[in-house]
């Protein structure tokens, strides 16, 4: 299975997310993550989808089927273009006094931040590529992880050309 990050520009209208997510489930596509948000144009929403496929053919199917949706304006496979990919994670870890120093070390090594602290736990925030986030999650699994929230990956193309003109 190979992963690709698709940037999908859609009309900012009600029902669009239903159309996109409904299509993904109906066609039984494997989705690793999906996130959506406003863009520089108020009428356009950008959906970031990480799709996991067996073959190029399957990838074409995902793109072609999504393209058929009337409210999809443009799809670009940013994994095939020079691009920067990021994900944000927040991890709440049980932290007694004796663990705290170790946790601060880990946070420093990963260039993460501690964004909340109480006598019982800390919340660690990290932005980076998915592999880096997977790595910190693995290291922290030695401690007691209370909960994790991840945004899913987003990406931008490098250079001056935006996705809408690619």
């Amino acid at each position: 299975m190979k992963k690709y990050l698709l940037a999908v520009l859609v009309d900012n209208k009600p029902g669009v997310l239903t159309h996109v997510s409904g299509l993904i489930s109906r066609r039984a596509f494997n989705i690793e993550s999906i996130s959506a948000g406003y863009t520089e144009e108020p009428s356009v929403t950008r959906i970031n989808i990480v799709v996991s496929v067996e073959s190029e053919n399957e990838l074409d199917q995902v793109v072609n089927q999504l393209s058929k949706l009337i409210d999809v304006i443009k799809i670009v496979n940013l994994s095939k273009a020079p691009s920067i990919e990021r994900e944000l994670v927040m991890i709440k870890v049980r932290a007694t006094k004796k663990d705290r120093a170790d946790l601060v070390n880990i946070v420093d090594i990963f260039r993460a931040n501690i964004v909340d602290i109480t006598p019982e736990n800390v919340v660690i925030e990290l932005t980076g590529q998915q592999s880096k986030i997977d790595a910190i999650c693995e290291v922290l699994s030695e401690y007691e992880i209370v909960e994790i929230a991840r945004t899913g990956a987003i990406a931008l193309s490098r250079g001056p050309i935006p996705v809408k003109r690619m």
């Binding site: 029902g15 239903t18 159309h19 409904g22 299509l23 949706l69 409210d71």
Partner: peptide, 14 residues
């Protein structure tokens, strides 16, 4: 209706 018809229409509106 939009929820139900999404997989069986070319497009739908509310």
């Amino acid at each position: 209706v939009c929820g139900i018809t999404t997989p069986i229409t070319k497009h739908n509106y509310l």
